[in-house]
């Protein structure tokens, strides 16, 4: 896989993304003067080097490739890459299937992300509540699907959905989950299954960080478990929920593995079903320059969307 596309195969909730975003705190008081500058530099260097090598350089290369066009002479003439300005970007904006695929993943995200995070929050609150037994078991059980590689999960669910071979063929013969109307939501189910546990764990660890005195105080004020969850826990773990929401938005726009697998066994999944699948298909022509332009536009869209969401939630918090 070329460097230009490698960046976009990150799966939702990718740990690299997690590490990067986790280091970015919300609003806080003015910084104290930085001391020990040299020590900080030494500590940051290993990260900085790897981050540049595997992140910034590929992005830079993708931008560079996206500015080139192919020129050649004759039928089998030699190809040369020449500077083409923004002509690849013009093609991106003229490309109907690409924007349809963007609309498709936005619809997907609008439905799937709230459901997934709602479930993750519910499970985390249940694990944190004193009323539930067998916490260790459930914590692991909810998290296990995340340990299944996305491709394997998609193949497994594809089998469960298949009309004649599914163990639940009584259902799948009557409802075709792989049809054009349902396949997007069938994929949403797979993604939810895989990532609920992961998001639950992030929210749960935020819950564990809440000082127990707060619960005690709430109880003294006469609050029950539900009231504590609603009025104490959820407001306090809001930053964690926002974080998982941003991961999920990024993950949604970068859907690749699941639709790529579903493409082989559903007539409804085309080669341009999601933006990343479009990038992949374009790069297999091979038209790396256009694929790079798609990638850059997609990255910018992801950035804008995540950032808007962050700003929006921060403003709400400030109110």
């Amino acid at each position: 896989m070329s460097a230009s596309t490698a960046r976009f195969t990150d799966v939702p909730g990718d740990t690299r993304t997690a590490r990067r975003l986790a280091g970015r705190p919300g609003p806080r008081p003015a910084k104290p003067r930085v001391q020990h500058k040299r020590a900080i530099l030494i500590f940051v260097l290993p990260f900085g080097a790897l981050f540049s090598l595997f992140y910034l350089v590929p992005i830079g290369y993708a931008i560079y490739e996206s500015l080139l066009v192919i020129k050649r002479e004759g039928t089998f003439g030699a190809a040369t890459e020449v500077f083409g300005g923004l002509s690849q970007y013009v093609l991106v904006f003229q490309n109907g299937p690409f924007w349809q695929s963007v609309g498709r993943v936005l619809a997907f995200g609008a439905v799937q992300v709230p459901i997934m995070l709602g479930l993750a929050l519910l499970f985390a609150l249940l694990l944190d509540s004193p009323l539930v037994r067998g916490k260790k078991f459930f914590r692991l059980a909810f998290f296990v699907p995340y340990a299944v590689p996305g491709v394997i999960a998609a193949i497994m669910w594809g089998y469960l959905y298949s009309p004649n071979l599914s163990p639940f063929s009584a259902v799948t013969q009557n409802i075709n989950f792989l049809s054009a109307d349902l396949v997007l939501w069938a994929i949403a189910n797979v993604v939810t299954w895989v990532y609920v546990g992961y998001n639950m764990l992030i929210i749960y660890s935020a819950l564990l960080a809440i000082p127990t005195e707060l619960y005690e105080a709430a109880r003294l004020d006469g609050a029950g478990q539900l009231r504590i969850a609603w009025s104490v826990k959820i407001p306090l773990i809001m930053p964690a929920i926002v974080l998982t929401a941003i991961f999920s938005i990024i993950g949604t726009l970068q859907l690749l593995a699941e639709p790529q697998v579903f493409r082989s066994f559903s007539s409804a999944v085309t080669s341009t079903f999601t933006p990343n699948l479009t990038v992949y298909t374009t790069s297999s022509i091979p038209n790396v320059n256009l694929a790079a332009a798609f990638s850059v536009v997609l990255a910018l869209a992801t950035f804008v969307l995540s950032f808007t969401f962050l700003k929006f939630t921060q403003r709400k918090e400030a109110q």
Binding site: L56, V57, I59, G60, I63, Y64, A78, T80
Partner: peptide
């Protein structure tokens, strides 16, 4: 800083995208 690094990386990688030679 990000923009500078990106620019530097473009310059660095620029040399690897050489033109392909003719195969006639």
């Amino acid at each position: 800083a990000v923009a500078l690094l990106a620019a530097a990386s473009v310059a660095l990688t620029g040399c690897s995208a050489s033109t392909t030679s003719s195969g006639t």
